[in-house]
Design a protein around this nucleic acid. Structure first.
Lengths: 240, 240
DNA sequence: ACCTGAACACCGTTCAAGT
DNA sequence: ACCTGAACACCGTTCAAGT
């Protein structure tokens, strides 16, 4: 959109500002859409026709810019009717919109995943809506945030999985050494093809339903003191 | 371990080789263990007392080195008794060992996740063992690989989640605007603290059990032609 | 206040040259 | 074959200087 291939602006403050938070964010999304994991401030500056250092006047660090992008993405997710439907219904379109949004910006997924939420009003508001629905539906209080985070972890991991080639798990080098993998990978790829979607998309939809069903089962049994405790086994496996 | 802070080796082929695949991998794991997402060939070369370009003699690219590290990590995961136990039992310690391994190398998680499996014999062998167990237990053939990939996506996403601060979802800036999140996040953190684990660890264990339970439910209903089809809804949500 | 331009401390990778 | 050293094309960030 904004081409401006550098009429070599001279030094000093321009008469009218060339940049703004909005213009930078817009160009940043264009750059992130042009797929490939190459998202750098330098290439963003090139696209905007400015020097890289000019960007730091609006966003102090690269992480701050990405945090702002995350806020925009969250805004566009929409509400998905958590107020009208039970959480396990409304969460499905929310999850689909989330991975779709992540998939549109391949170069950002890893960065978005590790970014602290911190003071991000949009993400906080999004979480608040979902958490409130779980509370309203009687989900066990101390398992609401874990359920939400587990779901988001699955979404993030699936988004990264979507970056791998469609036949990523196909044993091409020594197929005779992994016959079961060869068989089942072909079956899964054929099923995805028949459905007109990628294997990664089919995997996501399948895993999403399984995870939500599992989370729901625990929540329904949530009135009693919880025999399906989530705490016990961790002491025998996971460390720091 | 290997200090060798550069007695300034002179040019030309050394009388006895200074590097080897094993020495490089060992140092690479030491570097990845020293937490922080800074894993570079330059810092690895510094640790080994060589020039960065020397590394390319053993691993053509950084991605090739990380692929080799992934192979080592997979080897150390162990077998976890998929031959003796049903898949939904053996998969639990396998998943715990996986996230523990990822958690030990924070700087590698994102790179490991996006790496194509390609010709990685160790990972292929690991998958083959798991897939074979699912087949043996009668899991629907075209859902075996999706089940495995969904689980691994959850593990990868959870590993990334483990990098965020423990109170990542706590609304500190405007707590009055998100009361439900404030309540439930505190409840979850308190429960984790009482169990002597981090919130991320408790979330992982909880989500793992929910996901496996959900995957198992679909598999048990797998004899019939599948009314719980994974294909239909994708046509109304997920795109390229 | 808002930009340029130089500078700093990094990256991964290639390749000629030396032994 | 196995390393050094120089070179190339990048990074993010800081900061003085100009308007």
């Amino acid at each position: 959109m904004s081409e401006s291939e550098g009429p070599t602006r001279r030094v000093g403050r321009p008469r009218t500002a060339v940049l703004s938070h909005e213009r930078i964010l817009e160009a940043a999304f264009e750059l992130a859409d042009a797929n490939g994991p190459e998202f750098s401030l330098a290439s963003l500056a090139r696209r905007l026709g400015v020097q890289p250092s000019a960007l730091h006047h609006y966003f102090p660090t690269k992480a701050a810019l990405i945090a702002a992008m995350r806020g925009q993405i969250t805004l566009r997710l929409g509400t998905h009717g958590f107020d009208e439907q039970p959480w396990y219904e409304a969460i499905l379109p929310w999850a689909r919109a989330s991975i779709e949004a992540f998939g549109r910006h391949p170069g950002l997924i890893a960065a978005l995943a590790t970014l602290p939420i911190d003071g991000e009003p949009e993400s906080i508001a999004d979480y608040e809506r979902i958490v409130a629905a779980l509370e309203r539906d009687g989900y066990p209080s101390d398992l609401i945030v874990p359920a939400l985070v587990a779901l988001e972890s699955f979404i993030i991991g699936s988004a990264l999985d979507g970056l791998t080639p469609p036949d990523n798990l196909r044993p091409v080098h020594e197929p005779e050494r992994s016959p079961a993998l060869l068989r089942t990978e072909a079956a899964a790829r054929a099923a995805a093809s028949a459905a007109g979607i990628t294997p990664a998309q089919r995997t996501f939809e399948f895993g999403l339903r399984a995870l939500v069903a599992g989370l729901r089962a625990v929540g329904d049994a949530g009135a009693e003191p919880r025999t399906t405790d989530a705490d016990a086994p961790a002491s025998r496996g996971i460390s720091g």
